[in-house]
Design a protein around this nucleic acid. Structure first.
Lengths: 347, 347
DNA sequence: CTGTTAGCGCTTTCAC
DNA sequence: GTGAAAGCGCTAACAG
């Protein structure tokens, strides 16, 4: 390990506040105050300029360990997700990381299952290893996270989901988006529109379900739906098989890209062509949708904005703002590809 | 912000070494030594036991900020990737994170483009914000990372890629895997096997290309290949269109899942059925392959083992081991699905 | 407006 | 085998 000299620095590591202070001819603490825009003290423009110049000259960057130690903060936030398989999470994680970095935070990824019993995210939070947690679209079945929510819900934020006991969240207008999907199908002439959802105990699917039901109601068509067992391709596949057997459908609204991929497979195996015999629509755009067979028509919502809003809100909470529930509003955008068309004549 | 009392602790944050020491009736420094298995001093079994008991009782966990400050290490490693879209990266990142955590490290994600000019990963490393960098499957076109590689390549490791100037890497047997793919096709009776690759300047594709050429040579069949423009679905799509126009092919070896997805689309649009008219094989298993149309036959390599090996090697380097190149050896595993079959009679 | 001071929790010589 | 003490780089009172 590199060792420093006693009085004079021998092995030069990264520059410190002391170095900057020396170069600028001021005290290190003043540098700190200037760099942090300390409101209680205002440096004279002249010294401020000198300091900034020295900072740039030396390429000074804060040492997060030192700051973290002093402020009793880790400057890292945890992101909890079921998996990264879903491309939407991937994009969001990327975006969150980007924004977090700008805000001076690092991130660590995690999931309930994999961290191990005594190393849950909640315990990390409690131990001060992370300053806050962003929970992406999943159930909270981690016992200690739940306990945490009861005691200290000031630093846990759920993304596109709401949970009892957690008073901070940011969500999209999933309900509205689902409505748009059904309306689009109806405009093409469809009346037998099956909705395929993942379990409704998950808030996000409940909202999509609500939108679907609302649209059917408004349009005066009969709601036909199947609740899949889970969230994976396979669940969409099984649910679609069930729908085909049960209903005389002409269109399917698959409530997630994952379900939709399973849906397409089920239709293919049942020798039902898309969109000639059955139209398929889904919501939330991800790269893969364009490369499915056929490419999927979808309505998209601003997931990236969801991501930045979430991290900003969490950081706000960490520095003292109150938790709140927010909705990122935005009109769903139609991405028209080739999985939707007019219903077959015979039906 | 919670404030602590002067002499007696008022607001109790997470337990510290001092707390543990007090409970165990020993000096905090001893606790530290015991917890870190300090080889220079051996505590008596009795006190050791007392200490461990106190640690457990209090639920003590190290404060990474303090340790980092003291040791001039951040205990975080950076992962550089082109994107997380590719499910294989996702799985690997997950695995790396998991193992890193066990080893006492956090991770931060990053890419060249998005971090911003003066905040490249290399500079993070230089500034001590990260202790090392894992670069996943991409070119290194970050000027400062390149510079870094020239000066201090002791803490940069490339994963499934090798670069001039970077003396630490871990790779899989991609060449061998490509050979297996070609052989499988040939065993089914194919002679006109087109290989589709991403640009060969990328080490990983060069190796797959080499394997393909070697297999063709051994088999005595003519190598037919197309080098795509890039790495995305679209590039595979365009390359396949070109291959169809150029060769009388009966089978395609797509050198990545991404390319393969584009390949399937091109074949579909060209009204060539898979596998009746054209067989398609790819390598590296990811969830999506099973849900393509048709589900892809692939050969898989142990990417998760690649991930753990990489992080372990990097951490080893951080604590002083020398950089090295390692190959994770493993026989490619055939995952037989329905995209491959015997060639059509007429050819 | 700016400097002084203390101390966050940890590791690590150096004593005993 | 164990304790004492110093100091990593930073921030936040408190002085001046």
């Amino acid at each position: 390990m590199p060792v420093r000299g006693k009085s004079k620095r021998q092995v030069t590591g990264p520059p410190t506040l002391k170095d900057v202070g020396k170069l600028a001819g001021v005290d290190p603490s003043l540098v700190s105050r200037v760099l942090n825009n300390d409101s209680t003290t205002s440096a004279s423009p002249a010294t401020k300029k000198k300091i900034l110049a020295a900072v740039k000259a030396l390429g000074y960057k804060v040492n997060f360990s030192a700051r973290g130690l002093k402020m009793a903060r880790s400057s890292t936030i945890g992101i909890l997700l079921p998996d990264l398989k879903n491309p939407i999470y991937e994009e969001m994680v990327r975006k969150i990381q980007e924004r977090a970095m700008e805000l001076g935070y690092g991130i660590v990824l995690g999931s309930h299952a994999e961290i191990g019993a005594d190393k849950t995210f909640a315990s990390l939070l409690l131990q001060g290893q992370v300053d806050g947690i962003l929970a992406l679209g999943l159930e909270i079945n981690d016992a200690s996270l739940r306990r945490l929510a009861e005691n200290d819900n000031g630093r846990v934020l759920t993304v596109n989901a709401r949970f009892k006991g957690i008073s901070s969240s940011v969500i999209l207008e999933d309900s509205r988006c689902a409505e748009y999907c059904v309306n689009h199908l109806n405009e093409l002439g469809h009346k037998k529109i099956v909705g395929i959802f993942s379990p409704l105990k998950l808030d996000i699917y409940k909202r999509r379900y609500t939108g679907y039901m609302k649209a059917c109601d408004k349009l005066g068509i009969e709601p036909l739906n199947v609740i899949a067992e889970g969230f994976e391709y396979h669940d969409g596949y099984v649910a679609t098989l069930e729908a085909i057997a049960k209903y005389k459908l002409t269109a399917i609204f698959a409530a997630s890209n994952f379900l939709a991929i399973g849906t397409l497979r089920a239709l293919r195996e049942s020798h039902l062509t898309v969109p000639e015999q059955v139209s398929v629509i889904s919501m939330h755009d991800s790269v893969i949708t364009e490369y499915l067979s056929p490419p999927l028509t979808i309505f998209s919502l601003p997931t990236l904005e969801l991501a930045t809003t979430a991290i900003e809100q969490l950081v706000g909470m960490i520095v003292g703002e109150s938790p709140k529930h927010t909705i990122v509003k935005s009109k769903p955008i139609l991405v028209l590809r080739s999985s939707t068309g007019t219903p077959p004549r015979s039906v």
